[in-house]
Amino acid sequence: MKSKTKFSALLLFLGPSLGVITLFFFIPVIAAFSLSFSDFDIYSLGSWEYLRFVGLKNYIDLINDPLFWIALKNTFYFVLLGGPLSVGVSLGTAMLLNSKYIKWKGMFRLIYFLPVVTTLVAVSIVWRYIYHPRFGLLNYVLSFVGIGPVDWLGDPNLAMPAIIIMAVWKNFGYNMIIFIAGLQNIPEELYEAASIEGASGWQRFRNITIPMLAPTTLFISVITMIGYFQLFAEPYIMTQGGPLNSTLSIVYYMYQEGFRWWNIGYSTALAFMLFIIILIGTLIQFKVQKIDE
């Protein structure tokens, strides 16, 4: 039996971390919750006496705010299309690199992974030029197959797909690494047995790979979804939320309301909506996974 550690030692070892997390995370969460029921704005920033309790007003205003619904719709578009696409590409490339035909696996893995570690702001800038309607590399390549020229970031119908393509390019390497490890944990005998019984490649994929990877896929789907709900830098750099608000995301809208216009009460209500949406999304994914089993 371990003896209880002395209080002074605990204070020394746990005090700093728990202190910082309490002061800069737990208390702010509670503060944000309280602020979301207040009309904290630029006047209250100057003097607290202008701060009033307004009940559910911010949340009711949100529901009646067309921009909130646009931001919500755009964010869901990004998450529901970009998320599965990212996970799919990650799985595809993981299987590709797991193939016995590939030599120099380490080199390929390194190259695929490079976009993950690079600075999002910098690559968003690079992609903004790649998407340039006249001089961009992408339209030049597409011109060879008779497509184009496409105004990727200037067309309200294409701006979000363009951001999704970039996000998939930037992120797929991360989940690929996790998938590769998952694939290597599947016993080779399973595939051998299935082959002997005459299972096709697709059948082996559907009946062995997918179920064996289910826990990995759940984990990846949840972290990808949580990350994608927080879309911000890509539209900030590439489109400023435009054209016609077609790439305005929840976090972008929260940033504008809170840190541009100092509608702090309203902005914290937005942040809480984001939290609730992420929470529900996570719970749904766990539920779906359970039903599948």
Binding site: F24, T268, I278
Partner: peptide, 20 residues
């Protein structure tokens, strides 16, 4: 409780932390 707090997105705390 620390682990379960990880589902709260950082954006929630940004305004209060900024004010602090």
């Amino acid at each position: 409780s620390l682990l379960s707090a990880m589902v709260i997105p950082g954006q929630v705390t940004m305004l209060p932390v900024f004010l602090m």
